[in-house]
Amino acid sequence: MDTFSVLLVDDEVEFLETLVKRLRKRKLDARGVTSGEEAIQALKETPADVVVLDVKMPGMGGLQTLREIKKMYPLVEVIMLTGHASMEVAIQGMEMGAFDYLMKPMDIDELVYKLQDAFKRKQLQEQKTDQVVEKLSKLN
């Protein structure tokens, strides 16, 4: 599969750094930030294909960040990854358009698979949107 860009958002710095490193080893264009606010800023500067978002963070918090991301970049796929399993938060996030909700401890390969699936979905959605845009432009 083609390489794609991943933005990791987690306030646990140690976890974040090792995860970025491990994803890079797997040939993904990965970078990390430690808060929701930073994530929004980072996306403004350089877009990402998939965002991996910790749900429980000080400041903006995961769900709020998810909402913002989906508002600004509806095609960016967001995977929630959390140490605090919560059914309510999980389903809320899914309803807001998260691609999936994963729990730590996480098998790194499984995470990579999810990232690939999310990216594939993004590509397909983009293709669809392109076609619609093309059609609309022909209609006009």
Binding site: A85, S86, M87, A90, I91, M94, Y101, M103
Partner: peptide
């Protein structure tokens, strides 16, 4: 309880994804 919470969350998320 953390096991139960994680399992219940995991199964609901996945069933939700199935429906979606």
């Amino acid at each position: 309880m953390s096991f139960i919470r994680a399992q219940c969350t995991g199964v609901t998320v996945n069933v939700f994804r199935i429906i979606q």
